[in-house]
Amino acid sequence: MIAFSRKPPVWVLGLIPLAAFAIALWVGRFGVHWGDTFRVLFGLEGPSDVFRALILRVRLPRVLAAACVGANLSVVGASFQGLFRNPLVDSRILGVSSGAAFGAALALSFTSHSLWVQAGAYTFALAAIGLVMMIGMRFGSSALVLVIGGILIGALFNSFLGLIKYVADPLSTLPTITYWLLGGLNGTQWSDLPLLLTVSGLGLNFFILLRWRLNLLTMSDTEAQALGVRIRGVRNAIVAVGTLMIAASVALAGTIGWVGLVIPHVARAWVGPDHGRLIPVSAMLGATTVILLDAVARTALPSEIPLGILTGLLGVPAFLVLFLRFLRARGEAT
């Protein structure tokens, strides 16, 4: 296993997302002096109403959402990789994202109101996982059954999504759906946040409390059971909570790939495979990455760059580097 020679204490890593948070509040298309950013945040006199509205009503909710989405995707990715004993798994494995995408597209064909779109995405994300669980109940909820069920239900919702796109108005609805599917946080308002903040807060705490048990789940079912862990209950709880976190993220930000796959591997390369450290470090790195990429997405060009494109552009080379290091460690590449 590749590991850094010294493992930094976790609280030091907590400073990284905070720094990213501060930078992200300061940068944007509309130039604001960093001093003004500081004064607005701490309620001091000075900055104009435009600056105040910009930072508190436009940037702050968006940066908070980015932090939650990044942390959720990474933590769920890390725990699912352990749970399914498969390093190539991310949050999309159980068909949740496909369900959410269909729900959002369905809502978008009737209204562009963001709360309805969120509600649609959330509802169908849960419907997708519900169907996967039903398959699991019928065929025994082993990891294999859940994965196959997830692929099937995901494919089903992808077809439904295709149908919605086919009948959508190519002048107005179709571009909106296409853009939504590329993923991004443009237009995030405070009113969009209650669900995401609540689910992320509870979910992240759940995973941090449960992080030691996750180590046991990476063993085979019989080994874990021999150690006295009620494997099915724990696995179902992790799948359920993970799904809620992914659904809340996808409902707001669309389907953002690669974060949930690559960040856990980066974290593993840094602090090792022990979930006790892996989970909090994944959360911090994930939050930092999405905060910074979203800052680029909204600042680099006059038009918004879809976040899903940026995560792919960065995620693919990052994955290759990690993979090369892995091969070298096994002596299969030079």
Partner: peptide, 25 residues
Amino acid sequence: WNEVNLEQILRWNPDVIVIPPYGPV
């Protein structure tokens, strides 16, 4: 069509905004 954010629109600060005769806005 381009997707932009509110900050960019604030930066342009147009005198007049025109909405097309189709779509929900």
